[in-house]
Amino acid sequence: MNLLSIWGDALIVCAVGIGIVLTVLLLLVFILNGFSAIVTNKIGFPKKSNKKIFATDEDFQKVHLSTCDSAAIATALYLLYQNDSEDNHQTITIKKIERRYSPWSSKIYGINNLVR
């Protein structure tokens, strides 16, 4: 009996739990879909001056780059920056370092600057 009640409770927790998770996320899907539709002007509020930017998905795809194009551009940029950095490695740069006086380095300061 006890075992049965434990299993009964467990099944209820599972069923209700999955239900709640799905419901909450489904609710968010609907809200986000509606919200996205408003923002992308699919159903939009009527405006006199604003025309729809993208009437269909095809229009959207025409304006925006395809995945392959984006990847190609990203790769090109990556290689460009990589080459830049390689060039930088080949260049010898000498940075001028100025040591300021401090009581902690007074000995070095004295040796470097005062001994002639």
Partner: peptide, 27 residues
């Protein structure tokens, strides 16, 4: 990416089924 593709939210929900299945297994 989630805002751009809200239906993906359901995939995130489905993956939680494992939590409840394991709960039953542990019981």
């Amino acid at each position: 990416p989630l805002i751009a593709s809200p239906k993906s939210m359901m995939l995130g929900a489905a993956a939680q089924i494992g939590i409840f299945a394991t709960y039953l297994a542990a019981i």
